[in-house]
Write a protein that binds this DNA or RNA. Structure first.
Lengths: 228, 228, 228, 228
DNA sequence: TATGAATGAGCTTTCATTCAT
DNA sequence: AATGAATGAAAGCTCATTCAT
């Protein structure tokens, strides 16, 4: 009854310049570039970010960048896919520990929001990806939504979720809710020092879960034929 | 019982260069620039769009641009605010004609989706606005969400909506759903000729409305204390 | 009996950026760029030359360059074709004033050498054009050689040149002689101050003409059937 | 009566890094680098060629290059000088087998063209050498021309060549003819499959030799005073 | 009001060379 | 003797903005 997504892809570990697999040192350099890119993209956005800013932040030479990535777009895509993998992993981990359907949902969103708070780049960068790499954008959303969708279908099968709901439409609805509520209450809100909250405020979270629970809960007469 | 937003701001009608109000001819030029900007931003995105492309599309000279807008960012902000006003107007118009609460919701979303289909720029441009003009981005969302929120509060007052729901959180949830479902089923889907659907497929729309109705519907025992 | 080449092409006078014909001012700017390019290419060669060096020399802004030429290669090609036109014009002018066949040849080479001395760029730049723009290289040589070839054929028809000679091969031979003798005695030789001679030393010129005259002169028994 | 050049220089056989003489293995690596450089320079030209391309073609590591050559320019110079030596060797070999003066000339040009056909790098690379290494360029031409010049002077002494001709000017004329006719009829012409001819077409060669023979042949009254 | 030639900061990318292994 | 990851100077090019007309 888990709606945790499954994660399959491995990390890219081949040099685009030589085509050879990366050495241990190379792997570390690549990782530092990705981390620097995450920070710079998150702070400045894709277009304001520059290779120089990324390499400076990573503490490596400008030319070195091109030993690991073909282009700015290429590291962007790698980063999105990397973050996508990790957010799904984070969600899956929390969901797997859950007992009931509602607990799993709650856990999934908790994982999503926790990840968003720690990696605002994912949210920020994805929202401007439409013209940078539409395919990557689609992959990112689709992979997360697919997880929701499968979980919903499974929950419907055992009667935990209103059978009249379409799993795909519902999954995209949940994704949209998570994204905009994350944006509004996690990334926009600032305290006196201008710092974003470390995690989603519990009351917001509870209200959102109430909304979702209302939406998904099977109606009393729903158990019979799935249609009122 | 209407959740239609109210619209207050007027069109910008002062030349940033001279500070004097625009003549009739000037007003027309400004409008052509905004229309060209909408098309170019929608097709190419903010960063790929260039002033030259916009002025060429508008059929006016490059230098003329700066008689009407201070900068590229400035026309971007004007465009977002202009579209925001128009989408809220479109939503309000449809909602005002509605009878019941559910009808109003349905009408509001229908208006939103219709506008999105006709003005993909709104969606596309907003999603990359975070780093271009965060304040404008906030205004755009807030104005729409405020409308939802007031409508929800009013509906709760008369018992049409589950009183336990927080209007603000719920409103952002609805906004997120609308945005992502619009993106997924209106802007991504293409027919054989690569054309986007002219409007939201009716079954997607119905499933979304079912989800929303589930979520908002007052529970039977909800009239007593607002808590189950 | 003239071997002067005919010149047909007009100067490019359309902006590559806008596609519109150049204004008078634009024409002047373009000319300054070409002159600067000639100087920089001649001094530094194609690859060492840079757009910045060219625009600095021309006294215009870097960006302006791209209003007149698409790329570095583009100005290179324009320059070669421009110089080609002018060298053929210079040769034709001198040749038209000549009386006899020998005088015309002498005048043609004189024009060629004079132009080479004044425009070393032509020689220098053409010699490295093989990988920059092979088509332009071919055009340059072919246009000059075609002139020789036609002149030779005409002179053979009236018996002024040995009829056994193939006009094409002979024309290429003359071109090669002119180029290498120009290089050796015009561009390599330097006086005490390191300055190249202003014109071809007269004795070198005379010896070359003797060689050519020997080569072309009809043999005594050649007048009868063109074959010994 | 031979106009074959004499060859004196030996192969470079000292490591620029250590200053010690090359081992047998080192000698082989150096040779592979030169061969790779010849191919890459011929195909791509000096500036498009890169050390990486050369070392990859040679099948050795990038860093190894600098054990054998100081710089890109250095291998270029070595290559030009190496090819120069070999082309003169090829010419000399054919000329030594010749009987008459005319045969020797013919043989020399035949050797030159054969070498050009087999080693287009010589022609291609030399023509862009002006700005890469002018001194090397001068050496290359001078060494070949010197051979011609000495041969011409010797032939004049025995009355085989018109005594009025200046050996130096004539030698440069011959060099120029050979170069441009080689370029035109050997390197430019392509068959249906885009392949260059394996050797100079015999009719072109014969016409060129006729031209040369005309030019050099002593006039009947030439034996008396060297001036008509 | 309208124009478009001119500008230059700033971008992404390449590649000869170094050096620790 | 051999390697290839790392470097950064310098290149070609774009485009928002200015300003003289």
């Amino acid at each position: 009854m888990s709606i945790s997504p499954d994660i399959v892809e491995g990390t890219e570990n081949v040099s685009p310049a030589t085509g050879r697999p990366l050495t241990k040192r190379g792997e570390a350099t690549r990782r530092r570039l990705l981390e620097a890119a995450e920070a710079v993209f998150a702070e400045q956005g894709y277009h304001e970010a520059s290779i120089v800013k990324i390499t400076e932040r990573a503490g490596i030479g400008l030319g070195t960048f091109y030993l690991y990535f073909d282009s700015k777009q290429s590291i962007f895509e790698s980063l999105v896919l990397d973050l996508n993998q990790r957010v799904r992993h984070a969600m899956a981990e929390e969901m797997d520990a859950a007992g009931s359907r509602l607990d799993a949902e709650r856990a999934g969103f908790a994982g999503f929001f926790r990840f968003t708070a720690e990696h605002p780049a994912l949210y920020r960068v994805v929202r401007e990806a439409e013209f940078v790499s539409p395919e990557t954008l689609r992959q990112h959303y689709t992979r997360i939504v697919d997880g929701y969708e499968r979980g919903l279908a499974a929950a419907q099968a055992v009667g935990d979720v209103d059978r009249r709901l379409d799993p795909a439409v519902t999954a995209w609805a949940l994704m949209g809710m998570g994204e905009l509520i994350g944006m509004r209450f996690l990334l926009w809100d600032r305290d006196a020092e201008g710092r974003a909250p470390a995690e989603m405020p519990v009351d917001v979270f509870d209200h959102m879960m109430l909304f979702i629970d209302n939406a998904l809960a099977p109606r009393t007469h729903d158990t019979e034929d799935g249609r009122s």
